[in-house]
Design a protein around this nucleic acid. Structure first.
Lengths: 358, 358
DNA sequence: CGGATGGAGTGAAAGGTTTCAAGAACGTGC
DNA sequence: GCACGTTCTTGAAACCTTTCACTCCATCCG
């Protein structure tokens, strides 16, 4: 049954070693089922061309041998992967996991799977993941980049890996992008605070290399100018990351200021910062919003459940992910795909942290 | 230079097509650098055996051709993957992303990359991902399973893919597992509530197919029995998932009860439920903890920042992930690895939601 | 009854890398 | 000048699938 034609050769040390004892391949299945390699492959990929009887035999053989298709070999030969990757900034931020949910929704509808990767706001990790994903020849990459000008990012599409930028807009002709107008979002937040009569307003966010941080700040400045004030009125508190812990740190700094110099309102670059800030300020005895009004950004689910429900700038998170994935799928399947820049409009959700209890 | 020996054959239609125009391979690099295939491979895998001059030539050729190593081919031949996967229950739950952070920490230290997958508490998706990951021949799988008795899960190790179960204990001899004693956690929570004098206590959690939900409930019952009460005293509110939205739903149900039948305390299977419950109850006018004391589980970062800071059962999230990844690495590299069951001990963190303001 | 049609299955080639035994180049010591 | 080491490089096999031109057979039509 098992023919080993190497027997015929003159004596030679049997070289090479099996890299892994990883079970049976198509060959073994074919032998066990008494059919050819090609037929097994047909059962796997085009079951309709195989007669029911033969198919049953092959499937039985697969089951009894515990056959597991080797995806590397499949992909090598077939040249296509069934995987999308979403490389996100921070898995600990519910905003991104909501985006990821949208991505998965769209991918599942197209029969693809999604691998999530997280750069943790670290440019080196981002670069390493991009290299890895390109080497894996994934169908496409969705990314919320740290450094959107990275040459690595720009080169990917020309080498055959489609890339869609999520939650950022890119000004080049190589990628699709799906974003929310962050400048407008910043403007909405500050306009709201100005309307409430605040004069000393702080912007809490950082590092200043992150696009979202910059845009939201620029929007804030613009709102000030629109109101006839100098943009330099904005008191900037730079943080090291967009996390709850950094938010607490900023709260500490803010609360430490003498009351007559302390801002009466703070706009945070995201909700994590805002929640940390809120928590720290409250625990240090400041009243929100009486002593300090707070506006967050993203309107994550926890914003509403916070100690003082948080006013925030809402973004269509899931839709963002879904749209991005759909663009990516189009790019990789539609030969005359055209790159698009989709921009959604954010929306201010006013809650107690600025408006006070009614 | 480029010899095409197919020329020698009698006229035949040149068949097959190139699956994808995906850039240059080692062959092209070798030709461009004037060396053999083997040398290029050496530059890639064992740079120290190649003379500096040759290496420089090869590297220059790679750069100018934009060479990207084909990981499928590499893995097919070399038989090993540099990837770990963590298949989690719910990426939207900060508990799991914290675990993931620990996993990545350990993986990075070992020079591996991590792909995150999420089953979203759906058994079919879990199964599909397991199949996919096995076919990809990843180095190993970390999983927080929905169905820990799935035969798929049990069979993986015997076919060569190591599996470590995270946040669950498995009673078989095939896997390592790293967990926290959930029964004890449930006990701590209820003992605390009993000590505060509560008599009508609800347990909010579900679906009852999830191990964590069951164990925490069993712990709760045990605490009741220890206190000399029947386990049936526990008022069970079953939810459809462990999410904030389901927590709100449960809050609605609870608040709807007449005050004399309404529980005076609720223990939730996780913090997401607790936060939703809290939010809904507060917005319906119940005072926490006076009208309803609430205990959560996991002590996620947002628990402390909630409307009423949440009493919760803390687990060593990151450590859980790190330990699990280390066990997995050991299993896949150490020939005489022994399966282990690591169990951490949870800790009750008391905050305002049960103790009230001081 | 001859030829056309079509369904089912076959088998060799191809895909890009790694591996390893063996070869080449170049001293070195006697 | 020769055998011997070293150091570097080579070339072909192997990894496991998928693909596709082709064969084989039975059926159908005129």
């Amino acid at each position: 049954m098992s023919v080993d034609d190497a027997e015929a050769l003159p004596e030679r040390t049997r070289r090479r070693r099996a890299p892994k004892p990883h079970a049976a391949g198509v060959k073994a299945v074919a032998a066990a089922a008494g059919v050819s390699l090609g037929t097994v492959s047909n059962v796997l990929n085009r079951p309709e061309v195989v007669s029911p009887l033969t198919r049953a035999k092959v499937e039985a053989a697969m089951a009894s041998l515990g056959f597991v298709r080797n995806e590397s070999a499949r992909q090598l030969r077939a040249g296509s992967s069934r995987i999308l990757a979403y490389l996100m900034l921070d898995a600990g931020n519910p905003f991104f996991t909501d985006v990821a949910k949208g991505v998965e929704e769209a991918a599942q509808a197209a029969g693809l799977s999604v691998f999530l990767c997280t750069s943790s706001e670290d440019a080196d990790r981002e670069a390493a993941y991009l290299d890895l994903l390109e080497q894996q020849r994934v169908q496409g990459i969705l990314i919320t980049p740290i450094d959107q000008n990275s040459s690595r990012l720009r080169k990917l599409p020309s080498r055959g890996t489609p890339v869609v930028v999520v939650d950022r807009t890119l000004d080049d002709a190589e990628h699709c992008s799906v974003a929310v107008n962050d400048v407008l979002g910043g403007e909405l937040a500050i306009a709201h605070l100005l309307e409430l009569g605040h004069e000393r307003i702080a912007y809490v966010g950082g590092p200043n290399t992150i696009g979202q941080v910059i845009d939201r700040r620029d929007g804030a400045r613009r709102a000030l100018r629109t109101a006839g004030k100098p943009a330099s009125d904005l008191i900037e508190l730079t943080t090291g990351a967009l996390t709850v812990a950094e938010g607490r740190g900023a709260g500490q700094r803010l609360a430490g200021l003498p009351a007559d110099r302390r801002p009466t309102a703070a706009f945070c670059a995201n909700d994590l910062l805002a929640l940390g800030l809120l928590q720290q300020c409250v625990s240090l005895g400041l009243r929100v919003p009486e002593d300090l009004a707070i506006v967050g950004y993203d309107d994550i689910e926890f914003a509403e459940a916070a100690a003082v429900p948080l006013t925030s700038v809402r973004q269509p998170r899931q839709l963002l992910g879904r749209t991005a994935a759909e663009l990516l799928l189009d790019e990789s399947s539609n030969p005359d795909h055209e790159h698009q820049r989709v921009t959604f409009t954010p929306e201010l959700v006013v809650r107690t942290s600025t408006r006070g209890t009614l």
